[in-house]
Simulated assay, not measured.
Amino acid sequence: MIRLGTRRSALATAQATLVADQLRALGHEVELVPIVTTGDVNLAPMQQIGGTGVFVSALRDALMAHEIDIAVHSLKDLPTIPVEGLTVGAIPVREDPRDVLVARDGLTLGELQTGALVGTGSARRVAMLEALGLGLELTGIRGNVDTRIKLVTDGKLDAVVLARAGLSRLGRLDEVTETLDPIQVLPAPGQGALGIECRADDTDVLAALAPLEDPATRAAVTAERQMMATLEAGCSAPVGALAEVVEGEDGPELWLRGALGQDDGVRRLSANGPVDDPVALGIALANELLERE
């Protein structure tokens, strides 16, 4: 029996169930174990409650205490600093990493009027939306997907910005009024990907997780997260990154786009490198972003 720890939210449960079903299809017995995290019970702004790690620390504690065997995280919520004794045993195929708009009356970003009230709890999204110069009024929000979308349907906000992957996993893509081009709003590092964490010495669980691994997704998110780590930025910082495996002149290569929010706007750069060295690519692009300050 593999005990899978998950947060109680609808999205976290959907993600955990997705992984559980994949493991069951491989012949494993899986039990879902609900865990309450700081980020679930404290709805203060992310920067006030610590940002990085508020959704994962309780799951990691349960892993270390042998109360669960694996934990499924949204990779964008997982701190880049490793924890001794734990490892990300598998990163499955990534969902669409882009952000989406859910707006009243089916409006797109360009159709929102100057002064339209748009909700997001992300410093990254705020920086990138402000850089577009659309004159939107941005306001901080927290809560699950239902809570955020209800702010629009109840008329309290004109729109909210969310991750497309979450709505896809919840079967709610029909509520999206626009999928935002990464040229406008670059996703968070690791957005759309899941990280399945386990104890580093649990060879049986590592073997069970191996078929779920997608090498291209791991290479991409490793570059993105290394860029963020090199910038010494937590997941609540105004950093965007998106890497993709593309076909180069000499075979597959990794293309990484990065963005860093600054007082004077958003700085964007891109770079490419070998698929088998995503760490070096992330470091190089982060250093270039820092040099352009």
Rank of each mutant, 00 (worst) to 15 (best):
K156Q: 14
K156I: 13
L157T: 07
D158E: 14
D158Y: 01
A159S: 05
A159N: 11
A159F: 10
V160C: 04
V160N: 03
V161M: 06
R164H: 15
A165M: 08
A165P: 09
A165T: 11
A165C: 12
G166E: 11
G166T: 06
S168N: 09
R169S: 09
L170K: 07
G171T: 07
R172M: 14
R172T: 02
V176A: 00
E178C: 01
L180C: 02
L180T: 00
L180N: 04
D181Y: 01
D181V: 10
D181W: 02
Q184L: 15
Q184D: 15
L186H: 00
P187S: 07
A188D: 11
A188C: 11
P189W: 01
P189H: 00
G190E: 04
G192N: 08
A193W: 01
L194M: 10
G195E: 08
G195D: 08
E197Y: 06
E197F: 12
R199N: 10
R199L: 14
D201E: 14
D202G: 01
T203G: 02
T203A: 13
T203Q: 14
D204C: 06
L206D: 02
L206S: 12
A207P: 00
A208W: 05
A210W: 09
A210P: 11
A210T: 12
D214W: 08
D214R: 10
D214N: 14
D214L: 03
D214T: 05
D214P: 11
P215C: 05
A216L: 12
A220W: 06
V221F: 12
V221A: 11
V221T: 13
V221I: 13
A223M: 07
E224H: 09
E224Q: 14
E224V: 09
R225L: 15
M227Q: 07
M228F: 07
M228C: 11
M228T: 13
